[in-house]
Amino acid sequence: MFERSKILLVATLLTFAGLSHFAGGISPYYFDILIGIGINIILAVGLNLVNGYTGQFSLGHAGFMAVGAYASSWLTLKYGYSMGSGTLNTTTVFVLALLGGGLGAALAGLIVGVPSLRLKGDYLAIVTLGVNEISKGVLQKAEPLGAQRGLGGMEQHTNFFWTFAFAAITIYVVLNLVGSTYGRGFLAVRDDEIAAEAMGINTTKYKVLAFVLAAFFAGIAGGLYAHFKQFIHPEGFNFLRSVDIVVMVILGGMGNTAGVVVAATLLTILPEFLRAVSRYEWLPEWLRHVAENRMILYSLLLIVLMLTRPQGLFGNFTGKRNSKLQ
């Protein structure tokens, strides 16, 4: 009944609820970064289930984030105000809308995943990238959702508690799933699909399941993002956003949740840090320009990482660790 990971989850949620009261004291700038960290943790830990544990290469995670962001915003805009004064309070509407956005994204993940997961490696990456661009393209034309003007007017419901509560739930789900005998199927698919099938594992089911779960969490992250920024635009969910998330997974170590959490945190802070660096006037001109363009540093970071630690900063694929993860 009182399994360790469950107690840990409840304790974490209570801590966040407590901490949430002090979050108001943080300056808006740092608060923005803090929420960004939480959202990126949800995105990266979810994607790690697909790219890390199941060994498929999805490169369109921002597309599912977009589905969640737009779906939940549409829900709160439509039902949020009318019900706010009625039976349901606004927080309940917000959480239901988040879950709705997550389910919408999961459905999109199912529709995309079933046909495209027949592909492997680069081919799957290209298809998911295409889906990302298509969803962006559709949103740019969708008049009821603001099209090119973007969608705004949502209330700011996303706070410290909800962001990090969902981050904790994502981590709980991924770790508990992967650690169970049921979840060993994901790793088996990654390691050797033919052997996995021969051991009675339905590889298609596991691939689609990983994809749908990751899409669900991306949808939640999208909803949190939309109700924090209070304005969303199709360009905010483009290919570069997907790459950001993939970089977090690779940097943290494919299939290492703790590493991915750290990487998501570092890579959320890094652009802000670089922005500060680029203003130091005593630095040489060229260095300040490099600092301004984080993509240059990202690519350098990845090249150095691939050469020196291909398993990721924290990656560690030894059997010993895995078997202790029960």
């Binding site: 789900v173 799933l177 049921y182 790793l187 390691d191 594992i201 694929f317 895995n322």
Partner: peptide
């Protein structure tokens, strides 16, 4: 040989027990 290279000896065998599981994803969570 096609073992699951990233898994331990124990987990390689455990994975083969996967198909006899009576309880699915909801129980794992």
């Amino acid at each position: 040989i096609r073992l699951f290279p990233s898994l331990s000896v124990f987990d390689n065998v455990r994975t083969a027990c996967n198909m006899h599981l009576r309880h699915g994803i909801s129980h794992a969570l």
